[in-house]
Amino acid sequence: MNDMSTIERGAKLSETKVSARGVNVHYGDTHAIKDVNVDISNNNVTAFIGPSGCGKSTFLRCLNRMNDTIDICRVDGAIQLDGQDIYDKRVDPVQLRARVGMVFQKPNPFPKSIYDNVAYGPKIHGLAKSKSDMDDIVERALRRGAIWDEVKDRLHSTGTGLSGGQQQRLCIARAVATEPEVLLMDEPCSALDPIATAQVEELIDELRENFTVVIVTHSMQQAARVSQKTAFFHLGELVEFGETGQIFTKPEDPRTESYITGRIG
């Protein structure tokens, strides 16, 4: 990496990509997210941590309006992507999701070939002009997903036949192929063994270069390893948000400290 790009990255660090103001989420009568404000900066990895059921996934799913697909879910407040309100009536959630990609907790490749899995997004968004164009997109995405070498000889065998770790990297490649600006990852390593986890973590660090990454994790070590910023959620509230190093070494809120030292499960 040359100096220019490092400087560029330094400059980008301060830019806010996604900003949330006064976000509340209800599932029917359950108040799952309570008045959350957060700014997610460009070309950073932001980690959401907190005990399970505290609303990390719910908040993550607000950022690409996946909560729209749940009937009983209601989202209030303002969330802006590059300064534009994503809950505005004029915003098409389908197009939004092309800009804000998502990787899920459980690897969910389509029961199609590896090639078709990766080509799925580009195809529905019309990103490829020709077959060879598509081949390039697929190869680039699989390389970015750090899985190209493992699958290049069997692009046309089915994606569900891969191992768990390979499937998850395939899903990351699939999300990356659409060229999103933001990549949301909901506990992407929770179904993986330690070696696969290390591979995915390494991958996340590389992805930071081109994308804004938001990752939900229940592992504090993982948050410490991969993220620059960390947000700690507790019972639907955003308790503390700041530089990862600072959150883990000298947290301001006693609840954060109890969680990090293992007193809140």
Binding site: F104, P109, Y120, A175
Partner: peptide
């Protein structure tokens, strides 16, 4: 979810 999450 996978399909919707990719913007279909």
């Amino acid at each position: 979810d996978g399909a919707l999450g990719l913007g279909s």
